[in-house]
Every structure is written in structure tokens, then in C-alpha cells.
Lab assay of single mutants.
Amino acid sequence: MSGNGNAAATAEENSPKMRVIRVGTRKSQLARIQTDSVVATLKASYPGLQFEIIAMSTTGDKILDTALSKIGEKSLFTKELEHALEKNEVDLVVHSLKDLPTVLPPGFTIGAICKRENPHDAVVFHPKFVGKTLETLPEKSVVGTSSLRRAAQLQRKFPHLEFRSIRGNLNTRLRKLDEQQEFSAIILATAGLQRMGWHNRVGQILHPEECMYAVGQGALGVEVRAKDQDILDLVGVLHDPETLLRCIAERAFLRHLEGGCSVPVAVHTAMKDGQLYLTGGVWSLDGSDSIQETMQATIHVPAQHEDGPEDDPQLVGITARNIPRGPQLAAQNLGISLANLLLSKGAKNILDVARQLNDAH
């Protein structure tokens, strides 16, 4: 009898209710805020589980004197976190989706994509230029951005401005803007500013005609071990179906173009009346040469937790077992079709030249 009692006690200790789920994140304040929001949602869904947040620095956090596009290494903000995932030191990792490459290392998958916040870019102005827009900034004003995508589009749109690289986390960039006289304004992701509670610093939100956004911008991705079915089931509740389908289309477009950090590629997606609209573009580094096109596809946005595919093969690095396969494939095909259209119009040449120029500098 006593033996059975011990077995029952052991089973209770090993039951999922007692389990601590370890969540990996970057150390920056924004990353911690984003991770806290994901953990809060998981806690609400699984009140019996405990969650421990483990923060670590990544290569991208450490190399702050070089433009991201020049470092010449993929997975700048993800490699150390993936290493911890691989060694079973954490069970899942919360990322900004735009930091996750469209091809993940073997053994990993994006197990959830959370509801997207505003994906557009924002302009934050130096205190002396508050009330201005990019259009009304004085001639030769210097605007800071760490992104080739932003610089290429904005140089084309605002030729009277000069664009220079600015690195560091959000706090560091804002301090550089406010305390030094080098920059009249800087460009940042609206979602990051909003998550930090800095709505009052948003001086201008850039519309798609001015600057399309990065693939996955404004959404959070939760990376897990691809074979860890328990954790895949656990994080599945975080999937937002519309965000998922938009981001599958965007990531398929980028992957098929073979774009990345070192080339200016941008997108804009919208879901309306059962249609998914995808606009994508590529630019030369100075913005003088560009190709942009829009395509659409009829896609039914499923309700969360309709029964999805059981075999769960990944699409552009994403596993969404609780979302039907048909809409996911339709979104992926839309991204591939748009990429093929741009490639047929000469996108590869623009991107190759951009890559060579970026590598040469």
C-alpha cells in the first residue's frame, strides 16, 4: 500500500501541473516587456503551470559599433537563445518575429505568432524639431536608422535628408537623439515604442507609400524545439490566425527572394473581405531603383483552434497545428507568387547589386 502511495506522490510531482516552463529572452527592456506579455497570456491559459524567465545577451546586443547589415552573420539576435533551447536550458524563446530568419536551424520551429501590433515605422524627432515631419525637416538634416530597408525607401522619398546608421537598443538610440546634436530624427518601429509606453515620442507614423515595413514587423514569434510536442501544444494558444497568415505570406515572399538583413526588402499586408493583399518591394541601397507589386488571394481566416493538420510540417519556419492547413498554404503560395513576379521584373539584379555594395563598404 505504502509503495503505491509513493508512486502516486511521484506521479503528482512529475505531472504537468508541477512543471516549471523556462522562457528565454534577450536582456533589453523591450525584450523583457514583450516576454512578460507572452508569459502573462500563458499564465492565464495555464494557471497550474509556473513560468521562469531567463534573460541573456546576444551577438546583436554586444556589437554596437557596426551596422547590422555589415556584421555579416545571420541570427544576430537569436543564436545564443537557440543555443540555450538546444541544450534544454529553456523550453521556449520569445523573439520579435522580424529577427527570426525565414529558414531556422534544424530542430527549431516557430510554435506561435502572437497578435500583431502596429507594424509601421515611426519617426521620433529631436526636441528642437518636435512638430515637424520628415518632409518639413531642414535641408541636409541627419536621420538615424539601423535599417537598409528604411534608408533606401526614405532616401527616395525625401532626397533633402541624409540617413546615417544608429545602433543600440531603444533606450540607447533615444538617448543619442536627445543628448547629442548629430541626429534631427530617428526611425523606429511603432510597436516597440508603444510597448515601452513611449507613445508621446511618436512624431509621425510612416504610411506604406512612404515606407513599407519589415517582414514580420510588429509581431512576436515564440520559438521552440520542433519535436517538443508538449510545448508546441502549450504555445499553440498564442497563435493569432490573421497575423499568422499575413506573416506566412510575408516570410514566403522574403524567403523566395532570398532577402535578408543586408538587402532592402519591404512588405505591406492587409486582410479585407476574405482577401489577403500582399505588397512587396525591393530597392537599391540608395533607393534610386525599385520594383513594387501587389497581389491578392482569397483566404478564409479560420477561428482559433479549428482542428489543424496533425502532421505539422513547417511552413517558412512556422508550425501551427491548430490552424487549418489550406489557408496557410494559400498564404505561402501568395508570397511565392509575388516573389516570382518581382524576380521576373529584375528584382534579383537589384538585390545582387545591393548585396555587393553593402559587402564592399
Rank of each mutant, 00 (worst) to 15 (best):
S37V: 08
S37F: 11
S37P: 06
V39Q: 07
V39I: 06
V39C: 11
L42Q: 00
A44G: 11
A44L: 10
A44P: 06
S45W: 10
Y46M: 13
Y46V: 14
Y46L: 07
P47N: 13
G48T: 12
L49F: 02
L49Q: 13
L49N: 03
F51D: 07
F51L: 11
F51K: 05
E52S: 12
I54M: 08
A55F: 15
M56A: 12
T59R: 07
G60S: 01
D61E: 10
K62F: 07
K62G: 15
L64H: 15
T66I: 14
T66M: 11
L68H: 05
S69I: 11
K70Q: 07
K70I: 13
K70N: 15
G72W: 05
E73I: 07
K74Q: 15
S75I: 07
K79C: 10
K79L: 08
E80A: 11
E80N: 06
L81K: 03
H83P: 05
A84L: 06
A84H: 08
L85R: 02
E86R: 13
K87V: 06
K87W: 12
K87Q: 14
N88A: 10
D91K: 12
S96N: 00
L100T: 07
L100Q: 08
P101L: 06
P105I: 08
F108D: 01
F108Q: 15
A112S: 09
A112I: 00
I113N: 01
R116V: 02
N118D: 15
H120F: 15
D121Y: 03
D121H: 02
D121I: 02
V123P: 06
V123E: 01
F125S: 04
F125E: 06
H126S: 14
P127G: 07
P127S: 11
P127N: 00
K128E: 15
K132P: 12
E135I: 11
E135Y: 09
L137E: 03
E139K: 14
S141T: 09
T145M: 07
T145L: 07
S146L: 04
L148G: 14
L148T: 05
L148C: 09
L148Q: 12
L148H: 04
A152Y: 09
A152R: 12
Q153A: 02
Q155E: 09
R156L: 09
K157H: 13
K157C: 11
K157E: 07
F158D: 09
P159E: 09
P159G: 09
H160T: 13
L161V: 07
E162C: 15
E162W: 03
E162N: 05
R164M: 11
S165F: 07
G168Y: 02
G168E: 02
N169Y: 10
T172R: 10
L174N: 05
R175N: 11
L177T: 06
E179Q: 12
Q180L: 11
Q181P: 05
A185V: 10
I187P: 02
A189T: 06
T190Y: 07
A191C: 04
G192M: 05
G192A: 06
R195G: 04
H199P: 15
N200I: 12
I205L: 13
H207P: 12
E209N: 02
A214I: 04
V215F: 04
E223K: 03
E223C: 15
E223Q: 05
R225C: 11
A226N: 04
K227C: 01
Q229G: 14
I231T: 08
L232M: 11
L234R: 08
V235D: 01
V235L: 10
G236C: 15
G236V: 04
V237H: 00
H239L: 05
D240N: 15
D240G: 01
P241Q: 15
L244K: 00
L245V: 10
R246V: 12
C247G: 08
A249Q: 02
L254Y: 00
C261A: 01
S262Q: 07
P264A: 04
H268P: 04
A270W: 07
A270T: 07
K272N: 15
Q275N: 04
L276C: 11
L276W: 02
T279D: 05
T279L: 06
T279G: 10
V282C: 08
S284G: 12
D289P: 15
S290C: 04
S290T: 02
Q292A: 08
Q292F: 09
E293N: 09
E293Y: 07
Q296G: 12
A297D: 07
A297R: 01
I299T: 14
V301S: 07
P302W: 13
A303Q: 03
A303I: 15
A303T: 12
H305N: 13
H305W: 09
G308D: 13
P309S: 09
P309T: 10
E310T: 03
D311G: 14
D311L: 04
D312F: 05
P313T: 08
L315V: 03
V316R: 11
G317Q: 01
R321K: 15
N322A: 00
P324S: 08
R325H: 13
A330H: 03
A330Y: 00
A330R: 15
Q332I: 00
Q332S: 15
N333Y: 03
L334G: 15
G335W: 03
G335L: 01
I336F: 10
I336D: 00
S337C: 13
L338D: 00
L338M: 12
L338Y: 00
N340P: 02
N340D: 12
L341V: 10
S344L: 02
S344I: 14
N349P: 11
A354T: 14
N358R: 15
D359E: 12
A360S: 13
